[in-house]
Design a protein around this nucleic acid. Structure first.
Lengths: 224, 224
DNA sequence: GTGTGTGAAAAATTTCACAGCT
DNA sequence: AGCTGTGAAATTTTTCACACAC
């Protein structure tokens, strides 16, 4: 019954991208014992405008009370449901370089509905060693992980040269969700979702914005 | 002269966000000795549609030749210019935990117009130790870094509890570009740009998409 | 009175399709 | 003939403003 508007297709992408932020804010409020929030307060915590928040939430259904606000616990539960975080998602991290090890050690997976069930590396010399409490496995173990652990999400933390190869192996093993930290565009068959996190891109965007501050604007004959 | 449409305000945000991808593809092509590309080829390498690529590039000016394509070197130079990467941007990484050390060790800053000039940590016990070839500095050194090294970008890789505090110190020291890896919404004064990279958010979006595949669609009475 | 939910308007982004330059 | 550059259309996202429920 918690599924209604929830499972209906039609939550806009832009909204989905903001739901994790709302969930985080709600979780923090719940931890502080707060029972109810207004769109004004919640939106401030999430760093968006109140109107946007209300519009976003309206796509999930009516979980607020007019004149009052939103029930923190109930709304958090609903967003958890919509995002599919009611269950735990088994995650594997591939590539035990600096980044891979840092990701493996990252606490916060557990608290957000994810469980790192394996770390793997292409390099035979690393297989068998321990990283963040897990034994590094070989790439050949992927199919078994999918079969036996229900592995659903692969995180690629390899150098760019190996990323496509790893992606192919993940797909072949049946993984259909990939988070890619390597600075390359992966090509995958339809039905597989890839999201990319790229440090370089973010810095370059910051550089653009910083430069624009320095050279404010070319006065483009704004003589009215 | 390389500045024309380049420095004019009015490059859409969505376009700016894609320029780093184009630049990366162009750099790879140049390394392979390719002289000219069509929008079709370049867009495929960057993972977007050809029409979108052409529209994006049109905001920078006319750098293609009809019937031929784009000059790889020239276009790369132009995008470099527009993004403000003609100069090197001094970067500091704050927080020498797992993630901070991984970021500090990340090669790829140098090749993209950034230089890590300092790594710092709030913890006095880490100050003076070495991380990725740099001596860890104290937070109190920030103003000097800005003054003497021209530090322009701060990367926050601390636990969430300290992130706002670090942001405040960065801003106080004069840094106006922040890349935040901590899962919190930072509040900063106007004129300061913050971009956020959040592993948890990306995974949660993947979970949503994966779940939607599982429960394709609630058949919403599509009886036509 | 108060704050949500939402149509409608505005703005931004994407896609189309073709004129125009080489 | 071939491929860019771009108006115009289509789509998505954001913002507004107010009726409505409590």
């Amino acid at each position: 019954m918690s599924t209604e508007a929830a499972s209906r297709r039609g939550v806009p992408d832009a909204t989905v991208a903001r739901l994790p932020g709302y969930l985080r804010a709600l979780t923090a409020l719940a931890d502080d014992g707060v029972v109810s929030v207004s769109s004004e307060e919640l939106s401030a915590l999430a760093g968006v405008g109140p109107a946007k928040l209300r519009k976003d939430l309206s796509h999930l259904g009516s979980y607020g009370v007019r004149g009052v606000g939103y029930d923190v616990t109930m709304l958090a539960a609903e967003i958890t449901e919509v995002l599919g975080l009611a269950r735990d998602w088994p995650v594997a991290i591939i590539g035990m370089g600096n980044l891979g090890r840092a990701l493996a050690a990252y606490r916060g997976f557990a608290t957000r509905g994810f469980k790192v069930v394996a770390v793997l590396d292409h390099d035979e010399r690393l297989v068998g060693l321990r990283a963040a409490g897990l034994v590094v496995q070989a790439m050949a173990d992927l199919p078994a992980l999918v079969r036996e652990q229900g592995l659903a999400i692969g995180v690629i933390a390899t150098p760019p040269e190996s990323a496509q190869d790893v992606a192919d192996q993940l797909v072949a093993a049946g993984v259909r969700s990939i988070l890619n930290f390597a600075p390359v565009v992966l090509s995958v068959p339809g039905g597989v979702d890839v999201r990319k996190v790229d440090l370089g891109t973010e810095l370059q965007i910051l550089a653009f914005l910083a430069q624009q501050r320095t050279v404010p604007t070319t006065r483009t004959a704004e003589v009215s």
